[in-house]
Amino acid sequence: MRLGVLDIGSQSAHLHIADLTPGGAPVPVTSLKRAVRLAEATDRQGVIEQEAIKRVVAAATEAAAAAEAHGVDTLVPFATSAIRDAANRPVVVAEVEDATGIRLTFMTGEEEARLTFLAARGWYGWSAGEMLLLDIGGGSLEIACGGRAEPAVALSVPLGAGRLTRHHLPETAPARKRDVKALRQFVRSVIGETAEGLRDRPAPRTHVGASRTFAQLARLTGAPKAKAGPYAERVLDRDRLAAWVPRLAARSAAERSRLQGISAARAHQSLAGAVVAEAAMDVLGIEQLRVCPWALREGVMLDRLRALETHPAPDPADTAREVPAVPASAPVVTLPAGRGRHGAGRLHTVPTVPWTS
């Protein structure tokens, strides 16, 4: 089946299209990325500005057209904490649906942690052993650990780089030392409380960071460039990162955007991301972590692929074949009602249990 995953995050809307075949890894077909810049367009009360909502609608419209053009069988559209936690979330959801027919779905932070862990396990395999995963988004930090495909522990805390910038740091100007110190203490206290849930787990063999934040921080501290490809080994060293925190604080957002690895879109929240990453690594006793090129979108695909392997989609020509029931914990794999390789009409979109609309 051909699956499209539309992920609307704090900075961008990203569509990944891949072919899923039981027994194999997802085969990429194409991708589309458009800036939405929700983090900088959300006020302290959690309200997303109208101009940013228009950017989300435009990105979703373009993604829906691309999905149809590439013959996507099923489109999985979801938004992460930037919209999930917004005070005007119903307005955003309604405007996207009115314009595109796409009903955005939301997963819990714990479900995001589970799926991102699944992606990291898929990338590194069983040789990674007991694995501890960190994922810094715009609104939350996800933590997961375990020795199997599914994590034994999956946690989410509101320590996203965009959220912390909005509430604790200046958006564009250099940050004062006392503000950075206070933020670090706050982050350490939250992670310290959260880490209680990890104390009964075996010591991790592999530490993984999965997100654009970790990728940019790794590049800032000397990891290979993106053009080296996904198979280039990238690590983030805690001591090197700690040395960069005061340097980032002393720079404005514009100055940070000129540093290697820091994009202009994320420059304003790069300091908060660095503080969270360094504090988490310190509290959890991580000296180095590996930066995984797969993250949440790939986790969604792998989850769908597992469901497809367990309950293959029916052959539309074989109407008499009995289809086994799909468990409530697995995504529902369906054939399209939309234009594409198999039908005509509107593109079909499917939420994933236990997501909410």
Rank of each mutant, 00 (worst) to 15 (best):
V76P: 00
A86N: 12
E49D: 13
T30L: 09
E111V: 15
A94N: 06
A35R: 15
E112T: 03
E51D: 12
T30P: 03
A86C: 13
A82P: 12
A60N: 01
T61A: 07
T100W: 15
T108E: 12
P22G: 02
E49M: 08
K54V: 10
A82C: 13
D98Q: 14
V36A: 06
V36M: 11
R34K: 14
V27N: 10
I83Q: 09
A60E: 04
T80H: 11
Q50C: 01
S81Q: 15
L75K: 03
V57F: 05
P77K: 03
A67S: 02
A58F: 07
R37I: 08
K33R: 15
T100A: 12
E111A: 15
P28K: 11
I48G: 02
T21C: 00
A69M: 01
R89N: 08
A18H: 07
K54T: 05
A59P: 02
F106Y: 09
V76I: 12
I83W: 07
T42G: 06
G109I: 12
V91E: 15
V27G: 05
A52G: 06
V76N: 00
I102V: 13
G109D: 09
A63N: 02
T105C: 13
E68N: 02
S31A: 10
V29I: 14
A18N: 01
R114Q: 10
R103M: 12
T100F: 14
E68G: 02
R34Q: 15
P22Y: 09
K54I: 04
G46L: 01
D85I: 09
V91G: 00
A66T: 06
A94P: 00
V72K: 00
A67C: 00
T116L: 04
A94S: 13
A58L: 12
V36E: 10
P26S: 11
N88T: 07
A35M: 14
G46R: 11
H70P: 01
